[in-house]
């Protein structure tokens, strides 16, 4: 009896919470779509009124004027490469830290974790100097390197946690079977840590996709710039084409949401892979 009641109460509670947060999260997105179909005059008059006529041409204008397609391709290339490198390096390092005992590993881990604290906005001049020193100003490689590096602390932190959660017995058994260091990492640990890899990868990808300051600071030619340039294309010192910007924002969301869904599917695949172990 009590069990049933609690179940009912709990599931009501559950849906109330979920639905209210879904509204909270989805409302900005709906507003954005709606606002991107208005004229600037309508938007300035009242941001919450429906447009008289839906201005679908805002989208074609935005895509053409700012060259969004090229920018999205650039963003995809840069974000994918930076995410791949970042997850590879971070998982290697996290594997070394989480699964092995050596006297300086706590120092290493704390140091890298402390990297999350660093206010990246304060490092504009050093980063500009470093990238120039490496002769990577205005190159895709330069951005890839910076993004890969600035995401390392968070990725290493998350992955170390996930690696620690994998039962020791599996690794020890493979060790006795003669698996060496590299094989243990690639064949045993990586497949088992898939949910973690996918999670860290999601965040790393989003970081690359949304990063704005260094994307503008370290590049100058439109051929290699990212989607964030496309969004800022509509705002200037004295005049902002808000609806054009919103259209660009909506367009920019689609690829990153797709990547999110793809990555998160790996989390579920990871579950199946994990449950095989029994």
């Amino acid at each position: 009896m009590t069990k049933d009641n609690s179940l009912n109460f709990y599931s009501i509670f559950k849906w109330v919470i979920i639905i209210s947060f879904v509204v909270y999260a989805v409302f900005p997105f709906l507003w954005l779509v709606l606002a991107s179909l208005k004229t600037n005059a309508e938007l300035l008059d009242n941001p919450f009124k429906l447009p008289k006529v839906f201005q679908f041409q805002n989208y074609s204008n935005a895509i053409q004027e700012a060259g969004l397609i090229q920018l999205i391709i650039n963003s995809l290339v840069i974000s994918t490469c930076a995410t791949f490198l970042n997850i590879l390096f971070a998982s290697m390092c996290a594997f070394a830290i989480a699964r092995h005992i050596f006297w300086w590993k706590n120092v290493l881990f704390l140091m890298i974790t402390a990297g999350i604290l660093v206010p990246l906005n304060a490092l504009i001049i050093p980063y500009y100097a470093i990238i120039n020193f490496l002769n990577l100003y205005d190159t895709r490689l330069g951005l890839i390197l910076v993004y890969c590096a600035v995401g390392l602390p968070v990725s290493t932190f998350i992955l170390t946690e996930f690696f620690k959660g994998i039962p020791k017995e599996i690794e020890e058994a493979s060790y006795l079977d003669g698996c060496n260091f590299v094989a243990r990492y690639f064949r045993i640990m990586l497949p088992l840590a898939l949910p973690g890899l996918a999670t860290a990868g999601t965040f790393q990808f989003i970081l690359c996709w949304n990063e704005f300051i260094y994307a503008m600071l370290l590049t100058s030619s439109t051929e290699i710039r990212t989607i964030q340039f496309g969004i800022s294309y509509f705002t200037n010192e004295f005049f902002s084409d808000y609806v054009g910007m919103f259209a660009a924002v909506v367009v920019s969301i689609l690829p990153s949401i797709t990547v999110f869904i793809l990555f998160q599917e790996r989390v579920i695949t990871g579950l199946t892979a994990g449950s095989v172990k029994g």
Partner: peptide
């Protein structure tokens, strides 16, 4: 719920 994360 993840959408706000990817919106500029």
């Amino acid at each position: 719920l993840f959408v706000p994360q990817v919106v500029s």
